[in-house]
Simulated scan of single mutants.
Amino acid sequence: MPVATSDSAALAMKAAFIPAQPDFAAEALLRRQGARAVCGVDEVGRGPLAGPVVTAAVILDPDNLPQGVADSKKLSALQRAALAEEILAKALAVSIASLPARVIDAGNIRAAALAAMRMAVDGLALCPDYALIDGRDIPPRLRCRAFALIKGDARSLSVAAASIIAKNMRDKMMQRAESSYPGYGFGKHMGYGTAQHLAALTQMGAVPGLHRFSFAPLKILAKK
């Protein structure tokens, strides 16, 4: 069933305020207008100096919504892990995609993040009728209609759920990197440019395939 042409205007009005907690209002609006499956999409890992960009797409069950879902940045690691399990147990479909540092370096982080978002949507077992994308940009060649929702992880329950899934997965990936490359502190800073990380880069150099050589600190180190 097609979505009514008024969906963008109505969603824009919905995006004019931020609720106390992410809610299901945007998804419910789209469902009333004919979208049977609405997915939330978010990414993590745009800013780090190392590691992949990770995205997730989540289609929640309107009759079995997870409880306690919030913007992943406001949750502890333990809270995210517990909520990720609940989301996986209750959602109608979940998909995760990532692109490594080499792909990021070959283009740019924005393009890599958008490509990974599209991959996550493509990977959903249930084809969505509509996607709510966190941020200002809609991935090109998306297989469904979409709306870019600024601060979507604070507004939409589906986007917040995707944020939790993506953040929980990326943290696990960086913790594994810590095991393979001890001394950098990946399990603590998750690849971000902390003082510990920058000191380790100066002492031990960058890790090919893991560090993003197109990012400024790595470029500066390479010139020394």
Rank of each mutant, 00 (worst) to 15 (best):
V3S: 08
A4H: 13
D7H: 15
D7N: 11
A9G: 08
A10L: 15
A12L: 11
A15L: 04
P19N: 14
P22A: 09
D23F: 11
D23V: 04
A26P: 12
E27Y: 06
L29P: 05
L29R: 02
R32G: 14
R32N: 14
R36T: 13
R36W: 03
A37W: 15
C39K: 05
C39Y: 01
V41F: 05
V41Y: 11
D42W: 09
V44D: 07
G45K: 10
G47N: 08
V53E: 02
V54K: 12
T55Q: 00
A56F: 01
A57P: 10
L60M: 01
N64T: 01
P66T: 04
P66L: 11
P66I: 00
A70M: 11
D71R: 07
K73Q: 07
K74E: 12
L75C: 10
L75A: 03
A77S: 10
R80A: 03
I87N: 00
I87V: 13
L88Y: 07
L88H: 14
A89R: 04
K90D: 02
V94D: 11
V94G: 08
V94L: 04
I96K: 11
I96A: 01
R102L: 07
R102K: 15
V103Y: 09
V103W: 12
I104Y: 02
I104D: 06
A106I: 07
A106T: 02
N108W: 12
R110M: 13
R110W: 11
R110H: 13
A116M: 06
R118P: 03
R118H: 00
M119V: 00
V121T: 07
C127T: 12
P128D: 08
D129Y: 08
A131S: 02
I133R: 10
I133L: 13
R136D: 02
I138L: 08
I138W: 11
R141F: 12
L142C: 08
R145M: 10
A146E: 14
I150W: 06
I150D: 03
K151E: 08
L157Y: 04
A162Y: 09
S163T: 04
I165Y: 02
I165V: 09
K167A: 08
K167H: 03
K167T: 05
N168A: 15
N168G: 00
M169Q: 14
M169L: 09
M169P: 04
D171N: 01
M173D: 04
M174H: 00
Q175N: 14
S180F: 09
S180E: 13
G183C: 10
F186M: 05
F186Y: 04
G187N: 12
H189T: 00
M190Y: 04
G191R: 06
G193C: 07
G193R: 06
A195L: 12
Q196C: 12
H197M: 04
H197Q: 13
L198M: 11
L198P: 00
A199R: 13
A199C: 12
A199W: 09
A200C: 10
L201E: 00
Q203R: 13
Q203Y: 03
G205M: 01
V207T: 14
P208L: 05
H211K: 02
R212Y: 03
F213Q: 11
F215Q: 07
A216I: 06
K219W: 05
K219E: 04
K219L: 08
I220T: 09
K223Y: 01
